[in-house]
Design a binder for these strands. Structure first.
Length: 413
DNA sequence: AGCCTTTGACCAGCG
DNA sequence: TCGCTGGTCAAAGGC
């Protein structure tokens, strides 16, 4: 488990065409990319990873924090830490690592919350990272988005490989981390004054809830083939190899009675979770004792208890809280912004029908930037990622064909 | 004993 | 209409 072959060299961040990246920043009044969104582009997925490493993974994964810190040269890192410290003190704004980047055009355009986190990265870690991309100064105060993007890009290019050299942060589940990062992102967005952010919709619980499902994608890198512990209980009910992907996609249902939430977990070739798609909304609370059982991150529980707001929190605690609250906001983002997918369309009652399309679109766009990711499809600002629920696997299937491991990802371009 | 995973088969949507 | 693909079901087995 610890010795997973080093991932192949990752390509430097290639900023998406203007429509993707720049449009986000320059767009007048349009949704601004969240920290994670930005980060996603900076963490290109390693398509080449092999499925065989399914259970190994951890070594290749790195916590967001680690990645972020590692992505800088020592001097740079130090300086950035210092800068971040100064910037961050005041606002407690969400902090993103250097890896932040712009979501793919489709995602951005649709407003769906797509967050790409490199394998093993912990969003929370990202937030904590000294290299914080979205410090107030950068995100909305002293630095323009374009500048921030440029900086991030530059940073990423400095040490693309190092970002992946770290071990995954054990305390947080990938999903949880993702969600946390997302929430944090939203927080920062608010604080930075980004207009028209999904946050707005996130706050609108009722509207979002009633709207069709929103799809949320998170790129997370989990070292194990099972989805990260998001606090919920899941049952695997199927597995299939989807076309274009070497590794099977696993289908999970929330084990809670009558809970409609499902999630799909795709693995990278190296066995790490490359993509997690949450669908639906939990109609119940997270199992309280889930954490105790796992002995794993208390973040979920803590967040659960205090996820009402992240604003009043500080430090790591706040990050953790952000993790769980984030999913909700993320949902909101999706709902509000994910117009293209029809989530917010009044006419599209049957979001189910559109799910496949939506999914395809999102996935395509995601893969262009990076591989590992978590996708959440939810009806609203649910805390899907927040999972404290249980999921049980009740099926698995291998779909015909995908013979070629090496290809998949990233080649959407 | 209960829960979960695995696995093959079935069904529905789409081109 | 057919084939392909994704998603789900349900039996069997394991923990």
């Amino acid at each position: 488990m610890s010795a997973r072959p080093p991932p192949p060299p990752r390509p430097h961040l290639a900023l998406p065409p203007r429509s993707a990246a720049e449009s986000l920043f320059t767009g007048a009044g349009d949704a601004s990319p969240g920290p994670l969104t930005l980060a996603s582009a900076l963490f290109p997925s390693h398509a080449d990873a092999g499925c065989g490493g399914a259970s190994s993974g951890a070594s290749g994964a790195a916590s967001f924090t680690q990645l972020l810190t590692g992505s800088f040269a020592p001097q740079q890192q130090q300086q950035r830490q210092h800068e971040a410290a100064e910037r961050g003190r005041g606002g407690g704004v969400a902090r993103a690592g250097p890896a932040l980047s712009v979501a793919p055009p489709a995602s951005a355009a649709s407003g769906a919350s797509v967050f790409t986190v490199p394998p093993g990265l912990s969003p929370s870690g990202l937030l904590d990272s000294p290299g914080l991309l979205f410090s107030p100064a950068m995100g909305g105060f002293g630095m323009s988005h374009q500048q921030a993007l440029a900086q991030v890009t530059a940073q990423a290019s400095h040490s693309p490989l190092r970002m992946f050299d770290h071990i995954e942060q054990p305390s947080f589940s990938a999903a949880a981390a993702s969600s946390g990062a997302l929430q944090h992102m939203n927080s920062s967005a608010n604080m930075t004054g980004m207009p028209d952010m999904a946050i707005t919709t996130a706050n609108n619980d009722n509207a979002s809830l009633q709207s069709a499902e929103a799809s949320q994608r998170y790129q997370v890198n989990a070292p194990v083939d099972k989805p990260a512990d998001d606090g919920y209980n899941w049952r695997k009910y199927g597995q299939k190899v989807v076309k274009g992907s070497d590794c099977p996609r696993s289908y999970y249902k929330c084990t809670h009675p009558n809970c409609p939430v499902k999630k799909k977990v795709e693995h990278a070739e190296d066995g790490q979770i490359s993509e997690i798609i949450y669908k639906g909304k939990h109609n119940h609370q997270r199992p309280p004792n889930k954490r105790a059982k796992d002995g794993n991150s208390s973040a979920a529980d803590q967040n659960d208890q205090s996820n009402d707001t992240t604003s009043g929190l500080s430090g790591a605690k706040r990050d953790q809280d952000a993790i769980y609250g984030m999913s909700e906001q993320v949902s909101g983002l999706s709902d509000g912004d994910d117009m293209d997918d029809g989530e917010s369309r009044p006419h599209e009652a049957d979001d189910a029908d559109n799910e496949s399309k939506r999914r395809n679109i999102q996935i395509s766009s995601q893969r262009t930037l990076s591989e590992p990711k978590i996708i959440v499809q939810t009806t609203s600002e649910v805390d899907l990622l927040d999972d404290g629920y249980r999921w049980r696997k009740y099926g698995q299937k291998v779909v015909k064909g995908n013979p070629h491991p090496s290809m998949l990802v990233g080649n959407a371009f």
